[in-house]
Design a protein around this nucleic acid. Structure first.
Lengths: 340, 340
DNA sequence: TTGAAAGCGATACCAA
DNA sequence: TTGGTATCGCTTTCAA
């Protein structure tokens, strides 16, 4: 019966006090090298694994961090983003014996309540704040609760430690790429405006165009889903003055946009160039393969976890900047059509 | 400072012993109705939330369950399946104050090690066994560890409590649907044969055909990914004796298959009918929309969680059978082409 | 019905 | 350098 071995057993076997075992095993000073070896041996022979339960009660830490994912109830399908993000978190916390508590919620109020309960029950020592919104109430909540938290790609001046990956450079490159192909009317399919990352991408598109002396093309709201991309295509392509190129706020909506554009009879990239954002795997395989901006969700999770654990340890943590997202040119973007 | 309120504070405020508070709050007998009310009031006024730390140390439970998702390291994108599955788990465990610990791992050995450590550190009280393989080593592991576990869609005779959703009826309906459309050569794009659910779907296809006096069409291995669907199409459609209809082991590979088939010049469903399995949202929106088998991942997670918590409580749990998956006919399947 | 006290498995302080 | 012990917040006997 493994797992039943406690620190007391180890102490007994090594013939020392439990306090010495604790010190030895945690690499604290105050134990002679000889005793330490004796203890290490005993622990090893017994297959001792410290109980997180005991540790957390005594040490005021729970050794867990939380992530709440807010999804539409009738979709509930996680973005491809999350798999890698979560894996990145774990690659850091695992070695430090932390676990990730994941929750999903389908409404905003529920999300707040989840954070509140995670904190109140001392379930987790800290949380990740993903998909940050304008005036996100979670910020005030974690501050009120004194709960360590790290923001994922927040706006500048965000009051909590954060990890950011630059989006501007890549979007500028993307605009350059399109302008270089002769496009002058470049539209944008956005995400819900309440999300910071939604606005950031839209703003980057707008600024890049203006910096090049071009007027922003049409802007159509969508919601990061494939379906919303379909709808965006229907509305954006039905008007006379349609753009010759479209940038979508993420890959999923870009894929929906492409599918619908093709359905409406547009050749891609012959009649219309389309680009996405994220760099999910699917984007590489759709026809035509999607030009996109490759982000690093795994790295983002990794850095976010590193910062969060520092915060939990009481170390004042600096923000982390991940190397900028990069433009990946594929087949969905091409020369602007001659006549319009 | 919420969260700092302990059972002692409540006891003091109510003027009773902490043991009474514990009994009252947990609905145990041995407290007069009057005292109970007094305690409930005090707890409420103080905003008392019991510390999971304390509870778990004293109560021998950690109030957490674990899920380990095994993904290819360079993909790490979670199936659309998982979002709903996880949400289903939570809709049951949340009310019971359990949390879900999620881990991802990129290799089989790592997966086993994850389960082992979850158990050894008493991180979780039980685990979900998803994507079960032939001779899955996790079964022996949880039995050896005495760790409560529930299997998701395992084979018949699986030694642990399980939740199952019938796949056969829907696949038979699908075959009937195709046969009714005049198809006589129906191929299959499978998942990795080490997975039970992979084999189950393949077997259902084979048996359904044989029961109708048809010889199984070509079988091509794939791996549940979009990319593998592309490859499957390339190989299956390049030979002279290609099928007129194809069933894929999941929607993602079916979508890849369709895309590649179209790329190779096949009209769908004119030249070729394609069907998937899972019922992910994307399948509804691709062109043509995908005929598929709709499963209930949310319900599956819900039932699995219910069973797991029963096991943890020591209740002998019966397997759960979810209402069978249902066939959803869309546009990717149509009449068999006249000439071949 | 109530309350006092003994754990649960660690950490950490303080004597020895 | 050691070992003893209080402590964390709760559950669970066991007396009163």
């Amino acid at each position: 019966m493994p797992g039943r071995v406690t620190i007391t057993d180890v102490a007994a076997r090594a013939g020392v006090a439990i306090s010495s075992v604790s010190s030895a095993l945690n690499g604290r000073p105050g134990v002679s090298e000889q005793t330490r070896q004796k203890i290490l041996l005993a622990a090893d022979e017994l297959g001792f694994v410290p109980s997180v339960r005991g540790k957390s009660l005594a040490g005021k830490k729970t050794f867990a961090v939380g992530l709440v994912v807010h999804r539409n109830p009738d979709v509930l399908e996680l973005d491809p983003f999350f798999g890698a993000f979560i894996n990145g978190i774990e690659s850091w916390i695992d070695e430090r014996d932390f676990a990730l508590v994941l929750q999903t919620s389908s409404d905003a109020a529920g999300t707040l309540e989840r954070y509140r309960r995670l904190a109140a029950g001392k379930r987790v020592d800290g949380v990740f704040l993903n998909e940050i919104e304008i005036d996100d109430p979670r910020v005030a909540l974690v501050q009120e609760l004194g709960l360590p938290a790290v923001g994922i790609n927040p706006e500048p001046g965000f009051p909590l430690p954060s990890v950011r990956q630059d989006h501007r450079a890549a979007i500028e490159q993307l605009v350059d790429h399109l302008v270089g192909l002769g496009h002058t009317s470049i539209g944008f399919v956005s995400g819900p405006p309440r999300f910071i990352h939604s606005r950031q991408r839209e703003m980057a598109w707008r600024l890049a165009l203006e910096a090049r002396g071009l007027r922003p093309g049409p802007l159509v709201p969508a919601s990061f889903t494939y379906e919303s991309g379909i709808e965006a295509a229907s509305s954006m392509l039905s008007v006379r003055l349609r753009p010759t190129a479209v940038i979508c706020a993420n890959d999923l909506s870009a894929m929906g946009f492409m599918a619908q554009a093709q359905h409406l009879g547009f050749e891609i990239p012959g009649d219309l160039s389309v680009a996405g954002y994220d760099g999910i795997q699917l984007a590489e395989y759709v026809r035509p393969s999607l030009t996109t901006v490759q982000t690093q969700p795994r790295r983002t999770g990794y850095e976010a976890a590193r910062i969060l654990l520092e915060l939990i340890d009481g170390t004042p943590a600096a923000d982390a900047d991940i190397e900028p997202a990069v433009l990946v040119v594929r087949s969905s973007t091409g020369p602007a059509p001659r006549v319009h």
